[in-house]
Amino acid sequence: MSVENAPVVDVDEAAIPVEKKMYYRFESNDKKEFRVSELAIQQSETLNRLVEAMGYTSEDVENKPAIAIENIDGKTLKLVFQWCEHHKGEAIPVDDGSVPKIVEIPEFDAKLMDIDNGLLFKLIWAADYLNIVQLLNVSCKKVANMAQGKTPAQLRRVYLLPSDEEDEAAKRAAQEAQDPRAREVEEEFEERKRQGGNSFF
C-alpha cells in the first residue's frame, strides 16, 4: 500500500502513553552529583554497560544512591556529561585505521575544551576510563595540535619530555635509591668475585 492510499486515522495524542525519559544519577569522587539522560550515557561504553547491568527502573534511579564514579572529580565529570548531553544520539565512530586520522573539532567541543592543560589531562583520562570514543578523539586531537610548527626543543617543553641528560640523571638517581642493604650485598659479591672466591655463602 502506498503512502497516499494509507488510511488516515486521527490520533488523540493525549491518549498515547509518553515514555518517560530516564535520568541516571552519578556522583564524582568529591561528592558532586549529576543527572544524565539515558541517551547521553550511551556515548560512554563503560557507563552504558554499567547501567544495563544494574537494570534500574525509574523508581530505582530516584530512590537508590547515585552511582559513584570514584576516579573522576566533579569538575572533570561536569565537562564529560556536558559533552555527552550535547552529542547524545550521535553515532559512535569506529576506528577504520585510516592514516592520517582526520578528526575535526566541532565548535561546541572547542569551547568545552577551552580549559587549562591540567583539566584537559583529566578530561582525557576520564574519556579513556569511561570509554567515550569521540571525546577521546577530539581531546587527543587538541593535544596533537599543540605540536604544529614546533622545533624539537620546543616540543620537549610542550610535552614535558625529559632531555636525554635528565633521563640519564633520573636513572642514576633511581639506581642509587635502591635498597642500601641490597647494594651492599651486590658490592660484596662483586668484591669476592674479584678476589676469586668460590662461594659467596
Partner: peptide
C-alpha cells in the same frame, strides 16, 4: 608556551595523540 605531560596519559590516549600528528 603551555605544556602537557604526554608521557603520563594512558597508552590508548598517547597512541591517539600520535595518530593525530602530521609526519
Amino acid at each position: 608556551m603551555t605544556s602537557f605531560s604526554l608521557l603520563r596519559v594512558p597508552y590508548v590516549a598517547q597512541r591517539e595523540i600520535l595518530c593525530n600528528m602530521t609526519p
